[in-house]
Design a protein around this nucleic acid. Sequence first.
DNA 1: GAGTTTGAAACT
DNA 2: CAGTTTCAAACTC
Length: 821
Amino acid sequence: MMDSPEPSKINRSSSASALNASVNTPSSESPQVQESPFFRFASNLSPMRPAKACHVAPSFLGLNSPPLVFKSPRVNCDRESRYLERPQGTHLSSVEMSQSYNGGNSLRVAPGDSNESNSQLPLPERFATDTQQDIGLRNDTNTQSCSFPTSVDEYLADPGDTDEMYSVNPDVEQSTYAVESEPSNLTRTKKVILKCNGNDDPGDKAEEPSPLSEESNEIHQERPVENPETEGDKRVVERVSQEHTKLESNLAADVSHNSLTQHAGNGPDHSDCAAQSMSDPLQDVKESKDCHEMVSTLHVRQENISQDGSEASLKYHGIRRRCLKFGEAASSALGSNMSNMKLNATSSQMHFVNPFKPVSSLYLQRGIPETGSKPADYFSPSLKEPIALYPASGHDKRKLSPTDAGNSEGLDQHTPGKKKKKTSSTADGNGCKRCNCKKSKCLKLYCDCFAAGVFCLDPCSCQDCFNKPEYGEKVLETRQQIESRNPLAFAPKIVKSATNAPSNMEDVNLTTPSSARHTRGCNCKRSMCLKKYCECYQSNVGCSSGCRCEGCKNVYGKKEDYVAPDHALSKERVSSNVEKGSDSTMLNKPEMVASREDLFQKEFYDQHHLSPITPSLQCSDQGKDMFPSHRSLMLTDSCDSKSYENVQSPAPPCNSASCILQLTPLSNPDSTSGAPSIPAKPVGTSAPSSRVSHGCVRQLSGGSLRWRSSPVTPRNTNLGEAQHLQGLESDSRLFDIVEDETPAILKESSTPTKTVKANSPIQKRVSPPRVIGSSSSGGLRTGRKFILKSVPSFPPLTPCMDSKGNGNEDGNVDSGNGATK
DNA sequence: GAGTTTGAAACT
DNA sequence: CAGTTTCAAACTC
């Protein structure tokens, strides 16, 4: 039927019909409405029947878009994003196939549809018919499931939606098929709408099938026209296409038909369908079943529904999706500016990740279902802030390591080794990392998950794992213990240093910022820093003076070649730093007196700090909050404001996350350095000076600055700043973390800085971690001291992806932390 | 996939 | 702080 009709006409009709539908709403179908002059007029305008048009309309996302806004933008967004993300090729083909069946409809579908096709994919899988299409689709299914919901809201809100989506699809199909029964279409759309709106009513579930069946019926009907033989395959295809269309259509339809939704009545739909489709009931039934199954399996919707639409299930799904997305995002992000890009592209994701969300959410993101308070408890609520989406923990080293991140994508490339194998093992395709702990119970830093501040998930192969929500208390306790030993234990290990990039760096196409350095440095004896055994190498950063490696041949920068950034900035400082002995370079030494430059810088940073920010910080309260994710160091400003540095964790993928982190104000570099400095040794752990030093080093990476700035204030330019900025710019890495030279600030602070100082800047201890705000502030305030609070590490938000993060490589910026040892 | 190597983390 | 042990990833075969 559809063949002949010019697409254009159809479109028109569709649009027109849509309008009608919206206007008429439920009643539109009613005879009265039809009779209305307007209706007639509209009908006359296009040869197409309104009903059809309606259906068609959905197919066109663009057209529908407006309505979508009203309806459930989320869905659209998600899907769209999804579409974008996913490989569509196969699907498209399938879709097209289906379309072809449909006739002229195919034309419409095509472009935008690819997306749809993707969404649909799952269904086909479920159907699991043997058709090739199915196969092709399957590949995507995983991704889909993961990608699905972009936002938590969606999950929550739409648990049913997904189903609806499917259910809706029928409408779409109809649209394609639509020619015949208008009413049916409307009803269907109504159903869809209902579902969407309706939340999860169990009843809906029951209903859902019907729509599908109906759709299927319709499809069948049409199919018959073509080839009975191929019908099976076609069905699959159609379903897919339908789903795609449905999704789109749903949105549009929903909007337009919301009124109709009331009608929701299943009966009508079925009746309509029946009427419309002459197809055999049997087929319908089967299809409906299939549809249901598919939905349930893929989307879990059913589960949700079954559970009364419990959010949990949804969330869970959402999580999965997130992981995938993150991975995707990460991958995508890797290259470029991720932050922005991703944000935009994956806005949906961003939603999920909302930095401000409680930690629990973070976990969720990671894929962990919220267990409730535990996770939240575990990670202090304060986290809200920007925890990095990334996995920040420096520990991630391996996982997080850029390479890994890379796994997620391109980054790996950088790593010569490549070895993705592992990465693959460690990270699922999505980029989510997973551990394989056997004896540590995932409560030690050996465990990447734990180190990253995230709970272990299914993908993990760990044994006797206690890093689960159920054991939240234990996890926290353990974390605290570890932090007590080393406040920076969960801090990012890689920090960007503004200055020097190793000469080598250039040679290597590194994604990582040249300036980035491992806060503690490596201790390689045999790997020559050319294998992932080396944390520096793994993070795609050059070795620095802080490293104790032997025979360093790190392609990203040899230890020997390393020039401490600080030095560059101010040598005075360096001298001061020297104190520590550790070569660590300046960074560490908070103590040092700050040179004027430093001071300037400090101010500069301060300004940054001023920027709003940081939500996260607060967390610290106890000092030990665990916020795994990013290990940013918190510094408290005398003033109150806490600033922290962020360290980004490598988590790359989540650029967004990184962004978030940065949002937090940095404490001034100083602070950062301060952090280390802060750490007054007392607390202190003994961190090797050298290591510390690295951390301390400031590095202001431009990147970090940026981040900061972004969130907040623009700021100033001080001389020092300028310098820093330059450095930063050079780096231009999103990830970069700024480091500061704490010293300056600390120094500045007339007061106490010293008190604050820590030995190794990096490391540890902020002395009193604690109270960050308050306490520190008090004493500190006077001077602007920055104390490192505890450096809570933030959980990587992004759970998964991050880890590897590509971004990381770049991203690895950690703020200084480092300090663990 | 099993076994080895490696270096960080943890422990003494 | 140094040395040793433990651990899990990285790597090799």
